[in-house]
Design a binder for these strands. Structure first.
Ligand SMILES: [Zn+2]
Length: 756
DNA sequence: CGCTTTTGACCCGCGC
DNA sequence: GCGCGGGTCAAAAGCG
């Protein structure tokens, strides 16, 4: 069953999340990142090191190095340094968390190395290795904590095997042992310098370690709880999943779902930003927009930087009034949530986005789009006539297109009525018959905002870079649909089912306890989720952070994927390239989170999940509203920017070779060749999609020139270029500049509707 | 050479 | 039925 695999894959992601959350210091390198949630990369490993030069994981494992280490070691990752100390305990925690999380998946193997502390050179190594078989069937998680000076490489194996070697410290292990992992602290190494161990000093150390052990026990208990819950959730989800899958696809009523993602659109009045698919424009939306724009509240002083996601429930969308009323809260919530505090020294930009979901027709769409990058998501069922799922993403982005991990080919461009900026049309080229399309248009009012609307569902497994995002997005959409359907409409239940196949169980269920968004109840049924877990309420599960460390669970060093549109780089190579170590600046961290599809999606998923956990059942009769912001990296693909008209050749006659080729390529294949478990819903959609109808190349009569059309046709647009509103701050992130809004108060309305 | 982008023309739904 | 406007097609150009 592919789903099993999928689930396992997701578990990896969960592990990563755990690690990040529990131990912000840890950097997950690209490969680790990639590994999470994707079967393409079976191996995930991370090692933490405090300082040092440890460069490769093998070395770490063998413990040959005598230097203190505490950073995550990824083969591809660049080195990073940070002040030492605090590594040991938290490291273990993180590892435990990871291991525990991994445990749900099945086999977890753990090894412990002796823990040793010698004055001068101590080695703190936490190693988490998740090995996943290619099919995802074999998952192995190795965990090892080590705090000692390693003596000789050849002795390492023995050390690893020898858990209880010295002194009675091992008792602390008991608790964790229940979970199959054991953390051992031993003052003596492999008998190398055991002589000193009984000195007063050593005793002090011993007591210290015992204390630590106690803490660890606590930690372990906590983790166990978390794991238990996770496992429960996991099974629950599985059940739900099964239920969904069983529901006949036929049950879906023709409905259309639209999801809007608003990225990094804070102060920018997105009210002017249209650019979605036509049906999206509705009065309700307009009303919404007005509301959300108007509700810019205050909150001046704090510099929050974070990813905040606020969920609100409003009574169904058709009810204009109520929905509108709910909006403002969303905004507030976004602003209020996610205080990533910490680092006052640095001006922390913030970013928020709005995710709104509503349903118009009272029905849910059959599937959620697995589209790309997430940001703010608004999901709306708009037009019954069309079943396609739409996801609109807004990204503050300099480049012409945003990087969503998929490959796209531009097939058209047009100037829409209300917006001088041309709208570009792209088609997914990852798979031959993929019906997914996207529209990209720059926001009228804020040229720096790129509005990308995705339509349809892929008939193929998504690229690594896009998968996480996709699942997240779809999860968001689905969630919204589900939450609304559970209650309000009788029809929707069945129709929502297919989309559920996109949900990633782990993300949705397991992650939540860990991410533990600070759920500060907003007014009017709003929930605010603090994905960074800095809110008081969420802190309990998070390992204490060193004050000055300014590290966050979502560490930088993850180069965003290369440009989506037209970039030829294999998507599965999601950013493995070693990157220069970026300073752990707040802004950058955020940027990293925002930019990395995996991270971001994980965060979002977690938030959504959290929401579901709390409200999922009770949200009957309501539609939900999310709000979050993301500053996203956009790959600049100069070519895709509409350019001034240039001389063209006269139309030629007859289908050339090229044409035939294209036709063949575009010719829809009715069967989806490679249906992955999570693309099943896609297939369903495909069949119902009108646009993907087979008519490969219809012979076209000679085209006469229609003046009107000509006029309407593209008009060159000056490059969006450079200037951004002051409210946005440019931050240097990996792979490009990040735009972060400094003014969180205003969350742009999602759509500029018809504005005209 | 293969693929993408460009871009005028065509298609089609919708409102009047 | 007509015009408008959005969406798509596909020849040709561009690019590596
Ligand atoms: Zn596709």
């Amino acid at each position: 069953m592919t789903w099993d695999n999928r689930i396992k894959e997701e578990s990896s992601l969960l592990i990563a999340l755990l690690i990040r959350l529990r131990h912000p210091d840890i950097d997950l390198n690209a490969s680790g990142e990639v590994a999470l949630g994707f079967k393409t990369v079976p191996h995930f490993s991370c090692t933490k090191r405090d300082k040092g030069t440890q460069d490769n994981q093998k070395e770490a494992r063998s413990m040959s190095s005598k230097k203190k280490r505490a950073a995550i070691d990824l083969s591809l990752e660049a080195e990073r340094r940070r002040p030492e100390e605090g590594g040991g305990g938290s490291d273990r925690e993180a590892s435990d968390g990871a291991a525990a999380a991994a445990e749900e998946d099945g086999d977890v193997k753990q090894r412990e190395g002796p823990k040793e502390e010698t004055g001068g050179e101590e080695e703190k190594v936490v190693e988490v290795v998740v090995d996943q078989g290619e099919d995802g069937s074999n998952e192995e998680i190795k965990y090892r904590t080590q705090q000692a000076e390693m003596i000789e490489e050849d002795k390492q194996p023995a050390a690893a095997a020898n858990v209880d070697d010295d002194g009675g410290d091992s008792d602390g292990v008991g608790a964790s042992a229940e979970e199959k992992h054991m953390v051992t602290e031993a003052t003596g190494g492999e008998g190398d310098d055991g002589g000193d161990s009984r000195t007063p000093m050593a005793q002090d150390e011993l007591s210290e370690m015992q204390e630590e052990m106690e803490r660890m026990k606590e930690e372990n208990r906590m983790l166990r709880r978390v794991v238990d819950k996770t496992v429960r959730d996991y099974y629950e989800l599985q059940m739900k999943l099964a239920a969904y899958q069983q529901q006949p696809a036929a049950a879906d009523e023709p409905k259309e779902t639209e999801v809007f993602l608003s990225l990094g659109a804070t102060a920018a009045a997105s009210a002017g930003c249209g650019g979605g698919f036509p049906e999206a424009k509705s009065k309700e939306q307009a009303a919404w927009r007005r509301r959300s724009v108007g509700s810019d509240d205050s909150d001046g002083g704090k510099e929050d930087l974070g990813l905040s996601l606020s969920l609100g429930a409003s009574s169904s969308y058709d009810d204009d009034q109520k929905a509108v009323e709910a909006r403002p809260h969303d905004v507030d919530g976004a602003a209020a949530a996610a205080m990533i505090g910490g680092d006052g020294s640095r001006p922390a930009p913030r970013g928020y986005a709005l995710l709104e979901s509503s349903k118009v027709q009272g029905g849910a769409a059959p599937a959620a789009g697995e589209l790309a990058a997430a940001g703010g998501i608004t999901s709306q069922s708009v037009n019954p006539a069309n079943r396609k799922t739409r996801v609109s993403v807004r990204v503050r982005c300099q480049g012409p297109t945003m990087n969503d991990g998929c490959q796209w080919r531009k097939y058209g461009q047009k100037v829409a009525k209300g917006n001088p900026c041309p709208r570009a049309y792209y088609r997914c080229t990852v798979a031959p018959g993929c019906p997914v399309r996207k529209q990209v248009q720059r926001c009228l009012e804020d040229m720096s905002i790129l509005v990308t609307t995705y339509e349809g569902t892929h008939n193929h497994p998504l690229p690594v870079g896009a998968t996480a995002m996709a699942s997240t997005t779809s999860a968001a959409a689905t969630f919204m649909l589900l939450s609304s359907t559970t209650s309000s409409s009788s029809v929707s239940d069945a129709s929502a089912a297919p989309s559920s196949s996109y949900l990633s169980p782990y993300l949705l269920n397991s992650a939540s306890p860990l991410l533990m968004p600070g759920a500060t109840g907003g007014g009017g049924g709003m929930q605010h989720l603090n994905l960074f877990g800095n809110s008081p309420s969420s802190s309990s599960l998070l390992a204490p952070q060193a004050p000055g460390s300014s590290k966050y669970p979502w560490s930088p060093n993850h180069p965003p994927l290369a440009g989506a549109g037209g970039n030829k780089r294999p998507f599965w190579s999601a950013g493995g390239d070693g990157d220069k170590p970026a300073p752990a600046a707040l802004a950058e961290n955020v940027g990293a989170v925002m930019s990395d599809p995996n991270k971001f999606s994980a965060a979002i998923a977690a938030a959504i999940n959290n929401f579901m956990g709390k409200d999922g059942e009770s949200s009957s009769g309501k539609s939900s509203t999310f709000a979050w912001t993301r500053s996203m990296d956009c790959t600049a693909t100069p070519a895709s920017v509409p350019a001034p008209a240039r001389p063209r050749r006269e139309p030629v006659h007859g289908p050339g070779p090229h044409r035939a080729e294209q036709a063949a390529k575009l010719a829809p294949k009715n069967g989806c060749p490679c249906l992955s478990p999570f693309s099943l819903s896609l297939g369903l959609l495909l069949s119902s999609s009108s646009s993907s109808s087979p008519t490969p190349s219809r012979p076209r009569a000679h085209r006469r020139r229609n003046p009107a059309d000509l006029l309407r046709s593209r008009i060159g647009r000056s490059p969006p270029g450079s200037r951004f509103p002051k409210k946005w701050q440019e931050v240097q992130g990996q792979g490009g500049m990040w735009l972060v809004s400094l003014d969180p108060h205003r969350i742009p309305s999602l759509r500029t509707a018809g504005k005209q």
